[in-house]
């Protein structure tokens, strides 16, 4: 009983962090008057569990050699990553207001040379997973314990290079690699189904040889369980967590709407969105 209450407290805390992430995402995109809210919001719960529980990192020592690596292969949703980094103390909170502004460490897409906590520059879709494979391979060869987490978009997996990277991860038995697919079903032009049907991504990753889990990407307990499984099971297969998500999650008028892929909210929309998130709707 006491343990259950404890667990609930952890879940509650992570849910609160996810809310903070969502607010920060919208604040920075609103301030920048550009950016990608939809996919940032769909990944917020996953990222909350990663940055506030799972990842072994040291915000005061961002280049710590033994740190877990995180690769945001879908680099355009960097507002969610920047929010995590700010809330974890990699840089002061007020830096988030400089998103996409001249001279900012918070470039329109992640820049590892400017922003502490960014392990690799990304932004061109399909490429991040290959770099994550390189990092995981280096860990194996050097017999280091760190793991590599890579967030991939579902639309992004239309890129052939994603599958080149997966086959390499399988060949080299990179069970220290955890691929998370933000399966929100929408992309820039329309739904994935209309633009380029993906089929069942879990089946695809399984066929390539990954250990696949399917979860609700907005359920903190399910996300935690999936990460726990990946932590405990090191059977020589790379892990893939297909997280079913809702693009724009947490803001009613953004949910499931393609147009919020890359559109900033105006003042009124921003106010409404923040209210909704704070109200916990």
């Amino acid at each position: 009983m006491i343990q259950n209450e404890k667990k609930d407290a952890v879940v509650q805390k992570l849910e609160t962090q996810a809310k903070e992430l969502r607010k920060t995402i919208l604040t920075m995109i609103h301030e920048a008057k550009s950016g990608h809210p939809g996919g940032s919001l769909s990944a917020a719960d996953i990222m909350a569990v990663l940055y506030f529980e799972e990842l072994q990192v040291r915000p005061q020592d961002p280049h710590w050699e033994e740190r877990d690596r995180f690769v945001l292969s879908k680099g355009h949703v960097c507002p969610v990553l920047y929010s995590c980094l700010a809330l974890r103390g990699y840089f002061p909170m007020d830096v988030v207001k400089t998103l996409r502004k001249e001279g900012s460490m918070l470039q329109g897409h992640p820049d590892m040379k400017r922003c502490p906590g960014v392990d690799i520059s990304t932004g061109s879709l399909g490429q991040g997973l290959s770099t994550a494979v390189g990092m995981a391979l280096a860990a194996k060869r050097d017999e280091r314990k760190y793991r590599v987490f890579c967030l991939v978009g579902d639309g992004e997996s239309q890129e052939g290079q994603i599958w080149e990277a997966v086959q390499t991860a399988v060949k080299y038995q990179l069970d220290n690699l955890i691929i998370i697919v933000d399966n929100n079903g929408l992309q820039n032009d329309n739904t994935c189904e209309v633009v380029m049907p993906l089929g069942d991504l879990g089946v695809k990753f399984e066929a390539f040889g990954c250990s696949v889990q399917r979860i609700d990407g907005h359920s903190i307990p399910e996300i935690r369980t999936a990460f726990g499984f990946a932590r405990e099971h090191r059977g020589g297969k790379p892990h893939c967590i297909v997280a079913k998500t809702v693009k724009g999650k947490g803001v009613s008028f953004m949910e499931h709407v393609v147009a919020w892929h890359g559109t900033p909210p105006n003042d009124e929309q921003y106010g409404t969105a923040i209210q909704e998130i704070e109200g916990g709707v």
Partner: peptide, 15 residues
């Protein structure tokens, strides 16, 4: 799979 080879190399280089 040259494109992946290049990306993988970049990951190695960060380590």
């Amino acid at each position: 799979a040259e494109q992946n080879g290049c990306g993988l190399a970049a990951g190695l280089a960060t380590c």
